[in-house]
Amino acid sequence: MENTKQVKSMPEWLKKALGFARDHVYDIFSVAGLVLCVIIFSITSNGRLWSSYNVGIVIEQVTMYVIISLGAVFVYAMGYMDVSLGSQMGVYVLLMIMIVNATGSLLLAFLVILAMALACGAFNGAVAVWLRLPSIVTSLFLMFIFGGIQYLLIESTGSNTISTSLDMDFFTETWVMAGAMVLVGAIVFYLFNFTKLGKYTKGIGANELTTSQCGVNTTKWKVIAYMVFGVCVAVGSVFLLARTGSGGRGTGSGYAMDIMLCLILGGMPLSGGTRSKVRCAVIGSVTYVLLSNGLLLSGVEMNLVNLVKAIVFLVVVVLSCRDNSGYYPR
């Protein structure tokens, strides 16, 4: 009885605020995480977080993560993931260096890796359906293949790293990076919220059977979703190359998991569905970069950084996988 009285005597604005909080619990958590990172690392790094040198580094990293996770939104909305991302990017960077060094044309290099990324997208989307495999299996397959290619490429050069002589400073100009993020962000936002691609990828994640019974060619839209992701991976690889200027055996490793962490930190549900939002990619990428950058600046060792990331991952997944809807079959 007492409970009811409490509920009834609550002021209207508090009720509204609570209602809003309940509806946006994931947004609130992800933004709070971001704010927390900013505050904590501003203090623990003695302000070095905000040195112009460090801000430059943060922006460079954020650019790449944002672009790729924006593409990944489509894949994650379907409840899938792509573990081949890292080795794909490794190969793309190496290939670009080789093509640029041989021909001097960055455009040609980009077109080649774009074609490869699109092919991988189609593979992940279509072959998984044809062979009736979960797409994690095809992307594992791609991961091994590309790992092998990366190895062969680097072996063929006879050295441990290769670098390009081409001047790519253009891509590390702040306005170019910002422009690229805004452009990709705008396109993805449009596709995800205002076209069938976004609507259907969410549906596939939420309930594929129902979605297909609504007349959606799920195979086709899976392929398209993976291909859009491929485009973003190719663009992201260019920015990775511009930042490092070189590539080797380890280039790209770990990116698949990083992107997953970015999205989860941004509040993306691992199971996909209609709760997926484009803003997850943006907020999460910034949080993620600040987290790794801030930890290093605060003097935490590299090994420990990974441990912290692992713990954050676990905590976020446990929190976000709690089902609080409490419904039962009616």
Partner: peptide, 20 residues
């Protein structure tokens, strides 16, 4: 399991076949 996506909004469920 077939007719509805429980975890999606009412509006989305109604509009899904009509997005074309």
């Amino acid at each position: 399991t077939e007719a509805l996506i429980l975890s999606a909004p009412i509006g989305y469920n109604i509009a899904l076949p009509s997005y074309d």
